[in-house]
């Protein structure tokens, strides 16, 4: 994303990530840093059991930057990517995980219940594009999510970081994920910042209903009004009484008395309506 323009608009992933683009992922320290921060956050949200080496899947692993972090955490991982050039770079970097050249939209080629967790950094949005005549994004997304669900262990989580182009895209992706049987939702880190805002699709494969992790950079109290459903009456400024009512007349007489003006004394007839006869 160094160019600032969306790479999905330029070419299909296997073409866009050519040798030159792949090199950037080993030489551009800013890209490396962003990638590592995103991976760290994704792994945090996976909520893996502590001190247990897990078997993880990295979708769109590219040059294996995120995999390196997984290795540091003593996890074993398998990486998938559609770009052969990126995988070549990953191999040159001597990453620990096993690599596969595969297209997510064609479905996963793993046995059921294989993985303890799945992460993906900036990859899923590529599935929204139809790069070939035969591509149908909703179908490819459904194929991807349904086969992903199958190859995850029960109760495992998938944390997929993505850059959706617009809300329609995000809805397309989440709809297909839910259709495939996943529960979960989107966690948005730093929602009030244009640059730091990050979308994570957090999916649960079966298991008990779990709460979504809390997004970073959100302080509910600072940005939202406190909600209560109680009605409060008689607080604040007292209401003015209705004009020409007895209360209003009494108030007016009181006021004029205070002003030192001549006022008729109050009686039981004060403010009373005249009878019809008159």
């Amino acid at each position: 994303m160094a160019s600032g323009r969306r790479p999905e608009h330029q070419a299909p992933p296997e073409v866009f990530y050519n040798e030159e683009e792949a090199r950037k992922y080993t030489s551009n320290s800013r890209m490396i840093q962003i990638q590592q921060e995103l991976t760290e956050r994704a792994v945090e949200m996976l909520n893996l059991p502590e001190d247990t080496p897990c078997y993880l899947l990295d979708l769109g692993c590219g040059s294996g930057l995120s995999g390196e972090f997984l290795t540091d955490q003593d996890h074993m991982w398998v990486g998938m990517d559609i770009s052969a050039n990126m995988l070549d770079v990953a191999q040159e970097r001597e990453v620990e995980g096993d690599l596969l050249l595969s297209d997510m939209g064609q479905g996963m080629c793993f046995r059921p219940g294989t993985f303890d967790g799945v992460i993906s950094i900036s990859a899923i949005q590529w599935l929204c594009n139809a790069d070939k005549k035969s591509h149908n994004p909703p179908k490819r997304l459904y194929k991807f999510f349904s086969t992903l669900y199958a190859c995850m262990a029960r109760g495992a989580r998938a944390v997929l970081q993505l850059y959706p182009e617009n809300s329609d895209q995000l809805e397309l992706i989440t709809t297909q994920a839910m259709k495939a049987g996943f529960s979960g939702g989107v966690v948005i880190d730093f929602p009030n910042s244009t640059r730091a805002k990050k979308f994570f699709l957090v999916l649960f494969a079966g298991g008990t209903m779990t709460k979504l992790p809390k997004a970073l950079g959100t302080d509910d109290r600072a940005h939202q009004a406190h909600f209560t459903d109680t009605r409060e009456r008689g607080k604040g400024k007292p209401r003015k009484s209705v004009k020409k009512s007895r209360d209003w007349i009494m108030e007016k007489k009181e006021r004029r008395r205070r002003q030192g003006k001549e006022v008729r004394p109050d009686s039981r007839y004060t403010g009373r309506k005249r009878s019809n006869k008159f």
Partner: peptide, 9 residues
Amino acid sequence: KNGIPNMLL
């Protein structure tokens, strides 16, 4: 090839 299975269909 080169240790990477090509699973593309």
